[in-house]
Design a protein around this nucleic acid. Structure first.
Length: 211
DNA sequence: TTGTGTTTTATTGCCTCC
DNA sequence: GGAGGCAATAAAACACAA
């Protein structure tokens, strides 16, 4: 096509009644819509993604297109829009998943540290208290578990209120805690199993899922 | 220039709704 | 049953690196 030559309009190309040979020929002359046409179509789409037949006919007339072309454009546009939306949702879910994963790892570490603490405490109670240990010149257990030492000892973040090990209360309570620790170990197995399936839980109400 | 990947326009076949 | 929508797909148009 020479520079000054007018390109065939889309309505010239897309007659409704065409023989297959003509259709093939005209098919090979397919043109993309021009900027003005795209702009108008986009404008209409932004206000109404499924316009009525009459609206599509009016738009087609004003743009020099066949109504069918306009209908198809809207159909394709809806499909593109939907896939973009899906892509966006996928990215958001991915971010949420990563976020949840790192949170889980933190909780797991904290859980392991707590189990370790309980094990040490259990040993302490089995040995019969702190006096014997102090006799051997070893640092007293209460000293070891002082809040200021907890973090360095176990790699465990201190409690927000810095209650540390004192929070556990008297030794009779510690015995109960040791029993709980046994239960915890069993629960941990289930926990690990559930952690593999927690994302399947459609009833999850965590705010992490709400953007 | 050409090979390749992406985008855009159009078709086909199936489904739903009135 | 016809109209319109959607998913899948074809094929032309386009972009771009080598």
């Amino acid at each position: 096509m020479s520079m000054g030559e007018m390109p065939p309009t889309n309505s010239d190309i897309w007659g409704q009644s065409m023989s297959s040979s003509i259709k093939k020929c005209k098919d090979s002359m397919r043109r993309r819509f021009n900027d003005e046409q795209i702009k108008s179509l986009e404008n209409m789409f932004s206000t109404e993604s499924r316009p009525e037949l009459r609206t599509k006919q009016q738009l087609a007339r004003s743009l020099g297109l066949q109504p069918r072309q306009v209908a198809i454009w809207f159909q394709n546009k809806r499909a593109r829009s939907k896939s973009k939306q899906l892509e966006l949702e996928y990215r958001m879910l991915q971010m949420s998943y990563d976020n949840l994963g790192s949170k889980y790892e933190l909780l797991k570490k904290e859980h392991e540290s707590l189990l370790l603490q309980l094990q040490r405490l259990r040993k302490l109670t089995e040995k019969g208290g702190t006096e014997e240990i102090q006799k051997d010149g070893i640092k007293s257990e209460t000293e070891q578990f002082a809040p200021e030492n907890c973090s360095a000892e176990f790699g465990l973040p201190l409690c927000e209120d810095n209650r540390g090990i004192d929070y556990l209360g008297p030794e009779s309570d510690i015995l109960d805690m040791a029993q709980i620790a046994d239960g915890l170990s069993e629960i941990e197995n289930e926990y690990n199993y559930e952690s593999r399936t927690f994302l399947d839980n459609s009833g999850c109400t965590s705010p992490l899922w709400e953007f």
